[in-house]
Write a protein that binds this DNA or RNA. Structure first.
Lengths: 214, 214
DNA sequence: ACCTGAACACCGTTCAAGT
DNA sequence: ACCTGAACACCGTTCAAGT
């Protein structure tokens, strides 16, 4: 029986979840599906298209898993924060996801990303509910996405041992304001969390100001 | 005559500037230097170490080029903004730089990044000058870096044609708040610029609040 | 110590051939 | 239409051999 595009994506998702993106290759996918590695090209003319489709699917699984939790948050500002945290948590589980999400943002329209688009739609709805003028929502959304993606990508780069690596790098830089405050991996983790909270609050404050403006 | 590590890095910088990171391979580097491709392993045990060293060197060239301009900005808040814009401009010239900067952040201490560290030092000095308490500087710095890196990485992903690709993706998402506002690549460019300004101002406001707090 | 050159284990990709 | 299997042009990397 013939395989569908969805079959290839599902097999790819399994490989990524179990072994990470680095192990998602045309050979490993073919092996996992019990077919030849080159069969994928019948469904995805370029390997990259499969990788980005898998990236979106992982996003979709995450959204489906957390949707009740998201919709349960009545306050729209708190709901945006919840969505930002969910993206962070997903990249924590899969740090290679960040680079693929960036590539997804720069991919042509031939790459469909329904799940990521739905996630963006939830944020946009919450911003409108906060009272952000409709002609400013795109700007506010972009600022939030930039901060969330950048923060997650940087905070989890080098996983595992990302915290002790960052600690070592801060020590090497020899900047007193860093070394006096960051003395253990736990300190780094706390700084990352506080930087996320500080930035998210500042950006959401700015969104509320847009809402209050005439 | 024997080559030094710096010779390899310099040759790598030239290749990246002329042809991009994708063309920086052990073979192309060997060809450019007139030696065998495997000679690099005598100086950099892993290829990645050379790539990250080249990334830092490009950062260093950028900093050296802009240093007078940076130091001429007397107001510390405006100076941070200038530094953020310089990082953005560099990633605009070389979008693949963003992914390498993220990997740099997660690399072990065996990868020295003196130029990026110096850049961070300038930001930290400006934050202290703004009056941010020394035990909050690391947090403030991290929030600014997250936003700057994320924004640059996302805004310039897919270069060239990144603006029309983003436009197409927004249309595909079918979110009215996006499609009503983004009707041409120029609109996308304007939204990106405004999102950067909005976010940077919001984050710098938060830094000033930290400075004003008791 | 530094570089060469052959070789290895991968990668995405193409294409004629099968069903 | 879908899949196979051999082949191609790459990659980083290893290692014995040269100087």
């Amino acid at each position: 029986m013939s395989r569908t595009d969805a079959d290839f994506i599902a097999a790819g998702v399994t490989i990524v979840k179990e072994r990470g993106f680095a192990q998602l290759t045309s050979r490993s996918l073919g092996d996992a599906m019990g077919i030849h590695s080159t069969a994928v090209y019948r469904h995805f003319p370029q390997w990259d298209l499969l990788v980005l489709a898998v990236t979106d699917a992982i996003f979709g699984e995450s959204a489906a898993r957390h949707l009740p939790e998201i919709l349960a948050v009545a306050d729209p500002r708190a709901r945006v924060l919840t969505l930002m945290r969910i993206v962070r948590a997903e990249i924590d589980l899969n740090p290679e996801l960040a680079a693929n999400l960036v590539r997804m943002a720069g991919s042509p329209v031939s790459v469909a990303t329904p799940h990521a688009d739905a996630m963006a739609g939830l944020v946009v709805d919450a911003l409108l509910e906060m009272g952000v003028p409709s002609d400013s929502v795109a700007i506010a959304y972009q600022a939030l996405e930039n901060f969330t993606m950048g923060g997650a990508a940087l905070d989890y780069a080098g996983l595992p041992d990302h915290l002790s690596k960052r600690l070592g790098r801060r020590r090497m830089a020899g900047i007193p304001a860093f070394t006096q405050v960051a003395k253990s991996p736990d300190d780094i983790e706390r700084i990352n969390a506080q930087a996320f909270t500080l930035g998210a609050d500042a950006l959401l404050d700015a969104c509320e100001k847009l809402a209050a403006a005439p």
